[in-house]
Amino acid sequence: MAAAAAALPGGLRAPPAGLGAGGRPEPVEGSECLFVVLGAGFTALSHPLLYVKLLIQVGHEPLPPIIGRNMLGKKVLYLPGFFTYARHIVEVDGKMGLFRGLAPRILSSTLSTVTRGTVKKVFPVEDMEHVSNKDDVKTSLRKVMKETSHEMLMQCMSRVISHPLHVISMRCMVQFVGREVKYSGVFSSIGRIFKEEGILGFFVGLVPHILGDVVFLWCCNILAHFINTYAVDDNFNQASVIRSYTKFVMGIAVSMLTYPFLLVGDLMAVNNCGLHAGLPPYSPVFTSWVQCWRHLSAQGQLFRGSSLLFRRVSAAARFPID
């Protein structure tokens, strides 16, 4: 039961690249290359979404809110959605501006995929017992926990290996806020971070990201297992179909609950790095990710950036409505 792990726009997560179903033979080398190519393509296509989301996460709102109406007809203030925000970026930086920070992000995604493939070869999925309808409750739960531990190992390893490039990508993107050019290339950025922050500078924000991944994997897998075991009747004609979608639905629900970990991790990656987006007034200088979490919680901003379309102005930042 491989759980979803890769971050998608809005905080959702998708199945990790290159992870096959239980018992499926290891992909040949050509297939692994195909996974990498497809992953890079998806990363490029989704990059504008992640770019806009990151700018919203750091609190950059270059456009004023507009007055709209909710379903009850009451006047409310809405912040610009993805399309309006993306249009603003194009007006400032041109169409290619939507792909700022793409190169290190593709490298990060590729490293993650390769790491997963390596871990799968060292700890083959075929060596594990997979859940069967013939298993009793105790046996099936044991197998689920074992499979989840295997997926957690792959996810944590890939996260650690790819995180330095994730940090570089985040910093390249948030330079839009202050119009800086401090991080312009992968190699120059590596040298700058190492010189200014040391080796630990490549791993800022790693802990909340890993915690979010672990909580997501275990909650998603365990909840899906219990729902499939106790809520889905084997006598129902479409029981197998329902079970196949349970994990997907659980993934969407759990990803929203674990979104604050993603937000805090991204904010810590750019905090106090010399860029406007990581300094006051956009953000206080945090000494730890726990302090960042507490600050966002006190401000009611733990889910900032989780929505890219209908973005209502928060109660903490109300404007008068004429």
Rank of each mutant, 00 (worst) to 15 (best):
V125C: 13
I227D: 02
G178Y: 04
V37L: 14
E180I: 01
F319I: 12
T246S: 12
P164S: 11
L19Q: 00
L8K: 09
F203W: 15
A17F: 09
A44C: 12
N70D: 15
I161E: 08
C33L: 15
S283V: 07
G68W: 06
S255W: 05
G191Q: 07
P64T: 10
Y85C: 10
A317R: 10
E61D: 14
C172M: 15
D266F: 06
L257F: 15
L223R: 05
F261A: 03
W293Y: 12
N271R: 02
R100V: 10
V90E: 03
F123K: 01
V204F: 04
A4K: 00
M1S: 06
H295S: 10
G198Q: 07
V174T: 08
V90S: 03
V290N: 04
M268Q: 09
A17S: 14
M268V: 05
S283A: 08
H88P: 02
F123T: 03
C33I: 14
F303A: 04
S149D: 00
G305W: 00
V58E: 00
C156D: 10
W218R: 09
V167S: 12
R171D: 09
V167P: 14
M128W: 02
S297Q: 15
K247A: 02
N133W: 14
P16Y: 01
F226A: 04
H276Q: 13
L34S: 01
N221L: 01
H150A: 09
E147P: 07
E151Q: 04
S109E: 12
S108W: 10
A14I: 07
G198D: 03
V137N: 13
E129T: 11
V160G: 10
G198N: 06
V313K: 01
R311H: 08
A17Q: 06
H88S: 05
A40G: 13
A253M: 15
D135P: 15
M157V: 07
H276P: 01
G41D: 08
L55N: 02
L45W: 06
W218M: 12
S188H: 11
S307W: 11
G97Y: 02
G300H: 03
L19A: 00
W218V: 13
S109M: 15
A44E: 05
M154Y: 08
A40D: 03
N235I: 01
R100G: 12
S255P: 08
A5P: 05
R318P: 09
A7Q: 00
L19R: 06
L111W: 07
G97F: 00
Y282N: 05
H150E: 03
K121M: 15
T110V: 15
G81Y: 11
A6M: 12
H150R: 10
L49I: 00
H60F: 06
L45Q: 05
L153V: 10
G23L: 09
G117Y: 14
R159G: 12
S169R: 08
E29I: 14
E129S: 12
E197R: 10
L98I: 06
V90W: 04
P281N: 12
A4Q: 01
M157W: 03
M157P: 01
Q301E: 13
V137S: 14
V160F: 10
L107P: 02
V36H: 02
P164L: 04
G212C: 09
S149G: 06
V181P: 04
V270N: 00
V181G: 07
G278L: 01
L55I: 03
T115L: 05
H295Q: 09
K195T: 10
Q175T: 06
L45E: 04
W218L: 11
